[in-house]
Write a protein that binds this DNA or RNA. Structure first.
Lengths: 198, 198
DNA sequence: CTCTAAGTTTGGAGTTACTATAAATACCAG
DNA sequence: CTGGTATTTATAGTAACTCCAAACTTAGAG
């Protein structure tokens, strides 16, 4: 479907190029300091074309090829395990199988994310979608609809703790966000006791 | 200090006027369709002055006189009760004591909020602050610091479920968000069981 | 190969949020 | 009333986006 005509291949290449150059510039100079024109110039397209591919500057940063991987790792586990644990294991699996470059990119990207108010903002717009996705994962197990109240609420809690765990990056950009996310889910899995080891 | 000179009184009045007119216009015409110039004109100030009072268009919508009330209602309860329940009761108390106009305004504002991507975005920027505030409420009870991991994680979960419960407004603008928020906390208080009554 | 239909890129003109700055105006204290 | 200070305002500028029509590129039919 999204197969190989010259047209499609070209589009994919352009899209990838925009993303690559944009991320490079954002990490190099900062998000605000990089203009659409800078990006367009680096990719050798016109600024107009940028908007053919992405609706906004924020949108470029947003897109994680990780989600599908995590979902797959989630599905791969025995279905009778606590879904929070499954999610936790899934995330760990995915993160530990990244190449160093991938991991480094993700870390820097997340850091950029949390330190740029506009990007943090854009994240919440994704919150809705993420709740849907997580709800879908959870729903399957209990044989309920993904729009079931309890399922969605649980999904909200999952994202809430993950988000909260990312906040440490705002103060301490060198914090290990992967470990933080894992601890957050571990704590949630344990029922969020206020007495907690570490 | 912020006492009575003509100057101070005028500033307060201007600020209030901006907020009132801006909200009126947003609700009347929509957020995007209202320009800063529209607001300035309605308040009879210059556009420049708008920015003396609010750093951005979004900032006008954002300011809830409710937070302090909820905190007060929270403090007013016996300190040995489960903090989630306390928060829940606090919110219920505050909401049920609003005048009909206040309640209507809040409902419409929340609705505006959830239906406008830019505003939803701005909300997450507040997420950080809210985690702090909720963490502070929770911390007191267990005699831990508000920057304690478990406390902050719990705060994240609280906000996560509240946020998720607000998402229904995106599909169904007439949903009762107060009831939704209450159910969300009720469910969290019960330990987020996936088997759930309603 | 050629011609046409359709998709894609581009430039240009316009809108709006927001910043910086310096001039004008309103308040206040002596 | 006068001079210093806070506040408002106009002006000019930047950058993200939108709209649109013109130029160009590819796909496919004949």
């Amino acid at each position: 479907m999204t197969a190989s005509g010259l047209r499609e291949r070209k589009k994919l290449r352009t899209r990838a190029a925009i993303q690559k150059e944009a991320m490079r510039l954002f990490l190099e100079k900062g998000f605000d300091e990089t203009t659409i024109e800078d990006i367009a110039e680096a990719v050798e397209i016109s600024p107009s074309t940028f908007f053919n591919y992405f609706p906004s500057k924020e949108a470029v940063v947003f897109q994680d090829d990780l989600d599908p991987l995590i979902i797959k790792a989630f599905e791969a586990q025995p279905h009778d395990v606590n879904p929070i644990r499954r999610l936790r294991v899934a995330m760990r699996t995915v993160f530990s199988n990244l190449t160093p470059e991938q991991e480094s990119l993700i870390r820097r990207r997340t850091q950029l994310f949390m330190s740029t108010p506009e990007l943090r903002g854009a994240m919440l717009s994704q919150f809705a979608d993420l709740v849907d996705q997580v709800a879908e994962l959870l729903a399957e197990r209990v044989g309920k609809s993904k729009s079931d109240f309890a399922v969605r609420n649980m999904a909200g809690a999952v994202l809430g703790v993950l988000l909260a765990s990312m906040l440490v990056l705002m103060r301490d950009p060198k914090a290990d966000m992967i470990k933080a996310a894992d601890s957050a889910l571990e704590h949630l899995e344990a029922g969020l006791p206020l007495e907690w080891k570490e």
